[in-house]
């Protein structure tokens, strides 16, 4: 097999350079749909790179494991991890119970109760983080071959982590809830006011577009509204720590502390699409008769 030889004559180098620049400029002018073709071409390459990436992640995990279990405080970390998991489970249980209680109060008298189906979840491990400094993302060890796609929601038992924005055949990139470029439809659990949850540059999140008449206050819990994008209703997002109400503003906003600390996430669950009912199905919208 003949390898590409970079030792070209001066003129050949100039011609090659000119051709490359023309190709790059052509690439710039391509419509977005065609650029997705290039991303699809990159998927097998991503699969190849995912091997050294997973190898490095594996070595890193081993070293971190040895350090955590033997060098640093023996046994304490394991106990702490166990307690954290238990706490996460209890938080999730608590959020679900609160949501169920609120939903029952509102709907029991009006509608025939329909049990919310549990979504199908795929477990994945965090193997890395964004290669740049501009976005807050995590990289998962599962990809298209496991049924993962863009816009699927990612959670832990404690609450929402983020949303998948990119996949290769064996990895996925998850844009975290705390990234300012992320937006998730949220709902204040007590007042039932809806808004949009966005990340901030400080590593927290904010709930925007809360109605002016809402009596939301610090301590209120915010959950997913289930209206759009990858998440069923009632998953914990965070707790309000401050309400911002500006003069002559049309809406209020609130600062949130996320339920999940995205810097310490190790395992996550990905919500597969169409595995949970839409709001219409959940509320029992009448079906068309044949």
């Amino acid at each position: 097999m003949r390898m590409v030889n970079f030792r070209l004559s001066y003129n050949a180098r100039r011609v090659a350079l000119a051709l490359t620049v023309i190709l790059v400029l052509g690439f710039l002018l391509l419509p977005g749909q065609l650029q997705t073709v290039f991303h699809a071409v990159g998927s097998p390459f991503g699969w190849i790179i995912s091997w050294p990436l997973q190898a490095v992640a594996g070595i890193h995990d081993r070293i971190a494991g040895v350090w955590g279990q033997y060098v640093a405080l023996q046994g304490v970390e394991e106990e702490n991890r166990h307690l954290r998991r238990e706490l996460d489970l209890l938080k999730e249980q608590n959020a679900q119970l609160r949501e169920s209680a609120a939903a029952t109060e509102r709907l029991a008298a009006l509608l025939e109760f329909k049990q919310q189906a549990l979504p199908t979840l795929v477990a994945a491990q965090v193997i890395g983080r964004d290669t740049g400094n501009w976005y807050k993302t995590i990289i998962l060890n599962k990809g298209m071959s496991d049924g993962l796609q863009s816009d699927q929601g990612v959670i832990t038992p404690a609450g929402v982590v983020g949303r998948i924005v990119k996949t290769t055949s064996s990895t996925s990139v998850v844009l975290l809830l705390t990234d300012p470029n992320n937006a998730i439809a949220g709902l204040i659990q007590r007042t039932r006011d809806e808004g949009i949850v966005e990340g901030t540059t400080h590593g927290t999140a904010q709930l925007k577009y809360i109605p002016l008449l809402s009596d939301a206050r610090p301590g209120d819990r915010v959950v997913t509204s289930g209206l759009v994008g990858g998440f069923p209703r009632g998953l914990a997002i965070g707790t309000i720590t401050r309400i911002d109400k500006e003069d002559e503003a049309l809406f209020q906003s609130a600062e949130l502390v996320p339920e999940v600390d995205p810097n310490h996430v190790e395992e996550v669950l990905v919500i597969l699409p169409t595995s949970f009912p839409t709001e219409g199905e959940r509320l029992g919208a009448p079906k068309t008769k044949r």
Partner: peptide, 20 residues
Amino acid sequence: LEGLLFGLALGWAMSLFSAQ
């Protein structure tokens, strides 16, 4: 030429593991 080609290839590879 080498800088350009290597830059394009590395940028492409790194973008697969980033939101960029």
